[in-house]
Design a protein around this nucleic acid. Sequence first.
DNA 1: GGATAAGTTTGATCAACGTCAAACTTGTTG
DNA 2: CAACAAGTTTGACGTTGATCAAACTTATCC
Lengths: 105, 105
Amino acid sequence: MGRTPQHPEVSDFDVQRVLEALVDPVRRSIVTQLDALGADIKCGGFDLPVGKATATHHFGVLREAGLIRQYYVGTLRMNSLRRADLDQAFPGLLDAILAAQKQPA
Amino acid sequence: MGRTPQHPEVSDFDVQRVLEALVDPVRRSIVTQLDALGADIKCGGFDLPVGKATATHHFGVLREAGLIRQYYVGTLRMNSLRRADLDQAFPGLLDAILAAQKQPA
DNA sequence: GGATAAGTTTGATCAACGTCAAACTTGTTG
DNA sequence: CAACAAGTTTGACGTTGATCAAACTTATCC
């Protein structure tokens, strides 16, 4: 497990990939929970309606899109929201989606 | 052809549907062109890399998500961007995506 | 009215994607 | 070291969605 996972540079961020990452409700839920808590969380710390294998897949998609950063602490995989990087690449996008998420309509 | 198509009310706008609509590059291109021109355009007036049947499908998805409004003028189907409605339902979302679209990275 | 133009509908195809179970890897802890 | 806990990887499956060709509908124009 030990390998440090790949993260894209801000200059390599791609709108298409970010939107593809955020269109999935489970992944948007991950981002929302990460934002709401305001702190790093281990993969198992999220409330998700899918199995571990699927969760791993979703975390990978978010990481490769640049939305989260992942690092190991022992056997725990921690996740943090790359808010500043996202704001730099696509100003207002993350905020707008997080806000829209909260609105009933 | 004559029937007036269905458009959702602003109160029925749904984030999930809007994101699903905007995740497709062709549909995002339609929205971008509509925004850039600042005027209503007929379906055939867009520069799209797909056939007419597929284009019809994409316009339908955008309409049902609330992103565009469609109306007939003779045999022409005109399209207009529902910018104000979108801004009301999801402030900043459309702008952020349109802006992100323009950035090289 | 006949021809043409603009879109739509239907039916089919093909690729992507989310999902899970099962087996595996790695680290912690008694 | 043995057992357990946390994630990952692999392989398979089912659904969804984008796409097109062909036939159709509706309106305009000579």
